[in-house]
Every structure is written in structure tokens, then in C-alpha cells.
Design a protein around this nucleic acid. Sequence first.
DNA 1: TTGTAGGCGTTATCAC
DNA 2: GTGATAACGCCTACAA
Lengths: 334, 334
Amino acid sequence: MTIKDIAKECGCAIGTVSRVLNNHPDVSDNMRQKVLAIVEKHGFVLNTNARQLKAQDRKNIVIIVKGASSTLLNGLLEKIQKKIENLPYTASVVVLDENDNEGLVATRIYFEQKPLGFIFLGGSPKKLHGDFAKVHVPSVLISNQASSVGSDFLSSVSIDNMKASFTSAEFLVENGHRKIGVIGGALDSEISSTRYEGFLSALISAGVHFDFDKSYEIAKYSFEGGALAAKRLISKNPEITAVFAMSDAMAIGACRAFQDLGYKVPQDISVVGFDGLTISDYFCPRLTTIRQIEEELASEGLNVLLDSIENKAPCCHKIVPFEFIKGESVKKID
Amino acid sequence: MTIKDIAKECGCAIGTVSRVLNNHPDVSDNMRQKVLAIVEKHGFVLNTNARQLKAQDRKNIVIIVKGASSTLLNGLLEKIQKKIENLPYTASVVVLDENDNEGLVATRIYFEQKPLGFIFLGGSPKKLHGDFAKVHVPSVLISNQASSVGSDFLSSVSIDNMKASFTSAEFLVENGHRKIGVIGGALDSEISSTRYEGFLSALISAGVHFDFDKSYEIAKYSFEGGALAAKRLISKNPEITAVFAMSDAMAIGACRAFQDLGYKVPQDISVVGFDGLTISDYFCPRLTTIRQIEEELASEGLNVLLDSIENKAPCCHKIVPFEFIKGESVKKID
DNA sequence: TTGTAGGCGTTATCAC
DNA sequence: GTGATAACGCCTACAA
């Protein structure tokens, strides 16, 4: 069933049908009704491929979500999709797992679909090198800093990770903690190293020593990763009184592991997280954490992208505010 | 940049370029290399719209996810996308929030894109009536039963919710609980009413009375919903010794609320959940729950859909096994 | 082995 | 207001 069939059945030309279906004004009411009736009768709709082939301007924005398990990213995704709905664009979503390479995927999609732009929800600037340099459409990385990529097309919106981790670490120190363990990602990840830096400078400015080999455990950003790392950490360094975890998921995993080993949180050991996931407010104990404000991240991210797309604004790297959540997972010690 | 430009630059005809790009055998190696080199140099790829316009067979499957916040669904989504990648189909994803109408959205997409089929991750059979009846392509609802819809195109894959909730409730009863509260959805939702039915029949067969008005609290399937309902429940019926929550999220919310009110779980009150989310194994206490096996749900769901698409198999409603997780959130009482 | 040309379903620009 | 007709980018007989 094509526009042609409709035209034939209607006894008119295809142009007329097209005009009706595209709400062009220059069609007689009479004809319009007639066409509409037949269209309705067959439940006919225009072929999207043909339209887009013709109307050579795709208005699609591709959203690439890294790690389906992150509640933060899913909240963002929903918000952004909702916003785009009200704009003259469409959005398509690709969900990747931790091991996929978002840069490669984006590059493939770029050539296949020629979207207007990309939004990366999570994902690492590290993966946005190499092939991705060929992608010459505006993109924005949300929740991570991407200035290190040095691309003319890639913007980013994130919180000040350094300051945030500084704040958390400072809070631990202020509460009397001196022997602090860290559960974080490998330091070749920009985000992990930035958070580590912030943590470290808080300790340094408080005159607290930190022994990397003894007190830093590398883990995956997940419940399981946090739990495993917590066990390794406590066994090689049983004196620690607090743990700085680089994500809420890790923090929760760590809490679980500590409880399993007979330590109570925060009575026996304090834990701080990072992200401010919904669950962190329902977990027992409520997590002390850094909340990334979804609304802020989502709307700023989209704004930056649209500004690049519509006004050819140069790429930029925005910092949005975060919130320190006091929670209940840190105990004051002497 | 089109096939034509490549041909010109290459000094050959567009047919040759097309053949190279489609891996046709009848091209001289010489020519092939030459074309490939130029294609590579420009990073050129064929226009998807034009191909599909021509090859009139769209191979797209649309996945509609209801409620971005569910970890269960997101795990499923990732698995299904991965599976489809290895098949001669593409998949596109739409994420809806709790308030959207998945039936309406699917209907719109059906007419706009004419996909091969739909996969609903979560969502309610209730919403798949009405307009959705016009959607004449195979679809499958995953994690809920859809036989009640009575559509010839809509299959479903789910666990036996009745048996699962029976199992949970039975476990509570076996552990000495007689005064049990329920935190569930409104009973006009098929899933909630089925789970309630299973719960009830376990109580009945154990000779335990259940007073709906006094002991059933309607809540949203979320942490917050569970927490609010738990507070209402305990204030109107402080004698309960256990709570049957219809989702892990609700159960976690309830645990949080109980702790806030000074009740310890499971010492003072027992809680069972439903879903078997990853967090349920990390929460403190570990949740007693029903695990829906993602792998099973994902692969069965896709199989059912593909069987309908490829072999015109009639729609069917499959039951996949669940797992009862004992956890630590139920205490044996006398 | 390679080039040519018609057509996929639509839109838009012409005439009429 | 309406009807032809030429693109859009690609594939594929068919011809050379």
C-alpha cells in the first residue's frame, strides 16, 4: 500500500495525496475528505524511509547509555527523552554494558545514521578518542569531564568531581578519621583519578598521610566490585576506620561485605559513597554521599548539545553543582 | 557524499561501487581495492534509508521499556539487545515512565515505522487493549502475563506469579507468621491481583485469616511507595509480624521505614520482597525474595517473538521458572 | 568484469 | 487546486 494506491483509489494524483497527508493548505476540502477517508479505511501511513530519503535532513539525536544498571543514568535518560519529545527532534537510545566501547559504537552509528548529535550518558572520555575523532557532529558527555579529549565537537557536563571528593574526604577527616581506605576505579580512568586527587588533597591539607599501596583497592563500579574490594582492603589493612568509595554501588557492596565480616556500619567502620542514587537514601544505614543532580545534568547537557547543533556554539565543558548528603554511614570518632 | 561521488573519484560506475560495498563476488580485485581505498579515505557508508527503501524489508524490532528505574528490566534490556545484535535484525529502544501508556506509544510507532515486532519489557496487559489491537505484528510482553488481552499477536513470557507469591507467603507462614501485612499495587492491575491471589491461597490453605481492609496497603512499585505504605500499615495495624511486599523496591522502602520507626528487620518485623534485584542481595538484611531469572526471561521472550516473526507461530504465553531466595529478612517466630 | 538504467515511496517544483 | 515529473541514494537486472 503506497501513496500511489491511495491516489488511484481516490481518482486523483499522488501529489494531492501527499499534500493532504502533509497538511498542506492548498487542497480543496472536498478532495481532502475523500483522501482522508480512504487513508483511514486502509490505516495507511507514509513510508518513513522514503520520506527521510527525500527530506534528507534527519533530526535524530542518539543517546548512548553506558551501563544499564546505573540508576543515575536511567533517571537522566528518562528526563532527557522527555525533553526531546517536546522539541522538533527524535531521540534513539542505545544501551551499552560496561565492557562495550562507546566510542566505537558511536562511530559506527555516525556513519550509518548520520544523526544530528550524540549524548553520552556515562562513559569515559578515554573511549572517545581514536575512531571517534572522525565523528564530526556535536556531542555531549554527561556526568564526566571530557576536556581532556580535546575534540572540537565533544562537550561535557559534569559536577566538579575534585571538589566533591574533597568535600567527602574532608568530612571524614573532620569526623576524626585518619586511617581511611579507598575503593575506586583504576587510575587510568579520568573520573577515578580526579576523585582520588580530590580525596588526597583533602587529606594532605589536613596533614593526614595516605599510603596508596596499603589503602587503595581497585574495583569495578558495582555492588560486587565494592564488596570484593572491601574484603581485600580490610584484610590487608585492618586498622582503617573509614572507607571512601567512588560510587554508591561500591559503597553498598562494601557495607554488605563489612556486615558479613561482622563489622557494623558506621559503628565499627564508616563508609562514604558517591552519586546520590535513590537507593542510597533507603539503604540501611543511609549513605553519606555526593548527589549529582539529575535534573541539572540532564537539562544542561541537552542545552549544550542543542546550542552546538542549532547555533554552532563551540563545544564547552560545564560544571553543575552537587549536593553533599550527610547520611548516617559516618561515625564521629576521636 | 554518495555512491556516485565515490564512483566518480574512482573512475568507475556506481554499480561497481555498490557491488564492492555489498560484497558481491564479481568484481576484479584490482577494482575492489581501489574502491575500498577511496571509501576508507572518506569514511563513507551507504545511506540506510535508501537501502531500506529499496530492500523494502525493514528488520527492526522495537523494545519498549516501562519504567526506567527497574534494575530487572534494565538487565533484561541489555541481554536482549546483545542477542539481537547477532541476528539479522536491528533493535530500537523506547523508555517510558510509569505514567506513559505503552499501548498508545506502540501503536504510534507501529504506523510510523512498521517494525517487525515489539518487545515490552514490563508494562501492563491492561494498556495493551484498545488502540493496540490495530497493531498487527508479533509482540511479546516480558515479565507479565498477557493471555487476558486475547490478542492473536501478543505473546507473553513470565514467571508463575501466583505460585511464586504462594511460595513466599507459605514461607512466612511456616516461620510462624500469622499477622501479615501486604504492600502491593492496586488490584485492578493484573500482576498485583495475581500475586495477591497466590499470597491469599497460601494463607487460606494454612488456615490463616487475612483482613484486606486492615492489612493491605496499596503503593507504587518504588522505594518511596513501599516506605509510605509501610508507615500507613504499621500505624493502622501495629500487630503485624511480617510484611509481604510485591516488589523488592517496595520491600526495601518498607525496611527503611521500619528502621526509621525503630523496628529492626527481621528481629521486630519480617519482610519478603519480589523480583530478586541485584540490590536485594546487598541490602542489609539480605532480602527474602523471588528471583525472576533474567537470562531465562530474555531468551525465552526473544525466542517466542522470533518464532512468531519467522515461522508465523501463533502467539503463546510461556511460564519460566523462578527461584525462591531465602535471604535474611524473615525471622522464625513461635 | 563493468556500465547503464529503471524503480523503491515520497516530496517539491513545475505547469496547467 | 490539481496533475505530472524530477529528484533523494541505492540495488540489480540487463546489456556491453
